[in-house]
């Protein structure tokens, strides 16, 4: 049987994911807040407010505290000489093999959040698909990008 990939993402990505999840959760928070405002102006019952608030808090616990952590724990990748393997996912576990000879180009990209934490995402594109390693240390990401590009260039086209 094939070994599972063993490289983890940078620890700091967890922080980024948590922040993003929290920001998204704020939008979810608008629902009970909106309902609360509505109760001020319209004669509607108050109990749905507590139900909504409860649901949103529950969703928040999952979304901000549990899921990013599980996601981080599950994320594994490995760069071999001839292929890249990724394995990730909480509800759906996804395992991908991308041969080096199929790699068309490799990019690194960072948004403002990733940049703040000196992180970078590596994107690997084939002619048909795109794959991302979402958070590595900036320097490591750059080295990895060049390394994959180098391996892709060297890969034997006759294979």
């Amino acid at each position: 049987m094939r070994e599972k990939p063993d490289q983890a993402l940078d620890q700091k990505v967890l922080k980024v994911w948590t922040i993003v999840a929290a920001a998204e959760w704020l939008f979810l928070l608008l629902v009970p807040v909106g309902y609360w405002v509505a109760t001020r102006y319209f004669p509607i019952p108050e109990w749905p407010l507590y139900v909504l608030a409860g649901l949103v808090i529950l969703a928040g616990i999952f979304k901000i505290l549990i899921i990013p952590k599980m996601q981080w724990k599950r994320w594994r990748y490995k760069i071999y000489d001839n292929e890249v393997e990724l394995m990730y996912g909480v509800f759906v576990i996804r395992r991908v093999i991308i041969p080096m000879i199929r790699v068309q180009h490799v990019d690194t990209a960072q948004g403002p959040l990733l940049r703040h934490y000196q992180l970078s995402a590596v994107t690997i594109s084939t002619a048909a698909t795109t794959h991302e390693i979402p958070g590595l240390d900036e320097e490591k990401a750059n080295i990895l990008r060049d390394h994959i590009a180098e391996l892709a260039r060297e890969a034997d086209p006759d294979e």
Binding site: V92, V96, I97, I98, A128
Partner: peptide
């Protein structure tokens, strides 16, 4: 095989 760009396997909660 040489036309396959990437091979992926997925497993959802039920399949697990």
């Amino acid at each position: 095989r040489k036309r396959i760009q990437a091979m992926t396997s997925t497993q959802n909660v039920l399949q697990k």
